[in-house]
Design a protein around this nucleic acid. Sequence first.
DNA 1: AACCTTTGTGTAAAAAATACACAAAATAAT
DNA 2: ATTATTTTGTGTATTTTTTACACAAAGGTT
Lengths: 232, 232
Amino acid sequence: METKTYCYEYPRPAVTTDCIIFGFDEGELKVLLIKRGIEPFIGKWAFPGGFLQMDENSDQCALRELYEETGVKNVFIEQLYTFSDVDRDPRGRVITISYYALIKLSDYRLKAGDDASNAEWFPISKVPPLAFDHDRILRIAIARLRGKIRYQPIGFELLPEKFTMPELQSLYETVLEMQLDRRNFRKKILETGLLIDHNETVKGLPHKGAKYFSFDKKKYKELSEKGFNFEI
Amino acid sequence: METKTYCYEYPRPAVTTDCIIFGFDEGELKVLLIKRGIEPFIGKWAFPGGFLQMDENSDQCALRELYEETGVKNVFIEQLYTFSDVDRDPRGRVITISYYALIKLSDYRLKAGDDASNAEWFPISKVPPLAFDHDRILRIAIARLRGKIRYQPIGFELLPEKFTMPELQSLYETVLEMQLDRRNFRKKILETGLLIDHNETVKGLPHKGAKYFSFDKKKYKELSEKGFNFEI
DNA sequence: AACCTTTGTGTAAAAAATACACAAAATAAT
DNA sequence: ATTATTTTGTGTATTTTTTACACAAAGGTT
């Protein structure tokens, strides 16, 4: 079918969602990029995304595209910003509602980037020039993540269910680009009351002897509904 | 013309912008609402807004609609959130990129709400039930304003060029819904270095004897480009 | 002229953030 | 196996920030 069967009285832009997928691995913050196989920007890297369908809202669209392109499911997403510049897509007028996702890379390391796929994880310091206005989108996404991790416990979304305090600290240090004192960090994190201590220590490397913790999602929901804040 | 001349291969949603316009007057935070003259929701109050045109981005659209519907120009606007639920408009699929604006009510009190127009200022505690999903949008806008005023000097956008310290404090107390200590507030605000002291006192009521200040926009630009923060 | 209301100002107390050192456990090296 | 090295866990003293608080002066009101 190439007939244009959807007609309107006034012109309408196309609407897409794009998703900036963050992962944390080997002490680095990474984003998942897809190498474009078609024009425009063929061969360039870009964020996964696609067209909004008429039976889904933009959250659902972002989650669907995320799943279709990377196999990732049940992840944290949040709307980032809507980009609407007239010339941002050479094919025509396209509005993009952008999202960012935080995923537990340990769970999904195998899905994307494998089998010579066109998806690949890039440390944010080594992201190549991107298609469309995606460089700008990435900058905004990083700024949002950096700002938000300070006052909402979203960092856990980037770690395995069970993690150690040094791992968590390393994540914070990486995202915030600053060194943190081990004892003060531990104190602050623990006094949120949102960590479950598993009383179990790591056997092998790395982080030998470190205690395992996990994030108490239920407690967080309870407390945040009562209006508590969690500055870290 | 009623012919549908704009045709596409896939269905597209309509895209609009809506603007939540905040003003501060008589010690109250207010929003500007427009009474709908057509279905759906005829007779109900809603935020001003309209359809995105193909030669403008969403910022420009929000500013244009703002000007057309209220005569307001040169104001602070910021993108708020994009709403995309399937059933949010009974006429069909509509995506709304929402903005909020902060205006100096003193400058514009005459334009809207006068001459039996269909625009009116409502204190946020007395906003009637709104059309579409605008109740939800308002809640989100208020939360954003409340959150943002703490770490960015946007409160000044709601006051006249020259204002007194008690006026500024009253604004903060109203938006944050909390009492603030006069001396501590003054100290914090002044140590941002962003206020110009006019060494001139108010003659008449109210705020007799209070000093006039104004916001140093240039200095703010300089400093914020260097990455300074302004928590208040 | 006396009174009332509102403004401007500094310091002491409390709370929060920061700096800091050593013992114990696991691994790595010899 | 012994020793050395690396990384973890833990508490307190110091500094900084935030909060609490009272009185004199100016302008308007009665």
